[in-house]
Design a protein around this nucleic acid. Structure first.
Lengths: 150, 150
DNA sequence: TATATTTGTATCGCTTACGATATAATTAAG
DNA sequence: CTTAATTATATCGTAAGCGATACAAATATA
């Protein structure tokens, strides 16, 4: 049963690469006192502040029951504020605090440092970008698929 | 700061794809009563039974403090037995139980079902295989890197 | 041989990640 | 205008995942 060999799994490399790359982020994020998912939330808010829990969950393709406690921890860290919307009292709006906004400039170097860290000699930057495009195509498909299943 | 846009991150698609693919495994694994990491352990043991905690952690690129409790849960499920080695009393050897071995035939269909589930129309199988090869190249680089840092 | 170092596993604490479920606010249907 | 269905968050329980640390067994060194 060759298909059951670890080396023949297509998913395992994605899963392993994900964890290995997050490990590379760690030292940089440690300096800011945040985790990788928290960094992703900041990326989202730095682009568009004042969006809801659901918006963030949707952009990060995470469940709201993952995002809610994540955001609460970020509130405790003083990075964001969680305020219930006036128009629609079901919604909770996330807003960056001064500390959360200021962290953007501290994080500015991370993508560059990371690129230097994780870019293998053998793999050219164009190949990574090509892979990213293929992965996004794949993600688009998988997202549509799981939405259909609701 | 364009580099801090979520869409411009190379890591995020890997992280998101990993979770989305694991979600696709879920219904298949639910029928067997196991999780994705537990499935990976079984893949390893189906290939080579009677290896140590460390060997498994190494193959799955996981820390032993992740694998130890994982294997204990699998022991509770009756899938593996954990026996301390006689030659080297530090090592704990993992052996498939009858139930753990038998599960191989129940799982035989999963790679095929998965491929049908996760293969997007737009992405041809060859493209997925090409991506897998690039990812493995990348993983090799990242693994070497993190070993050097010890 | 005695001591120091390394190795293999395990424990603890904290943070994701998610299924199942609950609850209140909004919207749709009757 | 009620009642039903939907939507947005949140809570609970369980399983990873990992840094820091502990500890015993094995190996290396003095």
């Amino acid at each position: 049963m060759d298909q059951l060999k670890l080396d023949n799994q297509i998913c395992f490399p994605v899963y392993a690469a994900s964890r290995l790359i997050i490990r590379e982020y760690q030292p940089h994020l440690d300096k800011l006192g945040i985790t990788y998912p928290q960094y992703l939330v900041l990326l989202v808010l730095w682009e568009e502040d004042g969006i809801s829990v659901n918006d963030i969950a949707h952009k990060l393709i995470l469940n709201t029951n993952t995002v809610t406690p994540l955001l609460k921890r970020m509130e405790t860290l003083g990075l964001v504020s969680r305020i219930r919307s006036e128009e629609d009292e079901r919604r909770v709006i996330l807003t960056l605090t001064a500390k959360g906004s200021a962290m953007k400039s501290e994080a500015a170097h991370i993508p560059f440092s990371l690129m230097a860290d994780i870019s293998p000699d053998a793999l050219k930057m164009e190949e990574l970008v090509a892979m990213k495009i293929k992965l996004e195509e794949w993600i688009g498909f998988l997202k549509k698929k799981s939405e259909k299943e609701l």
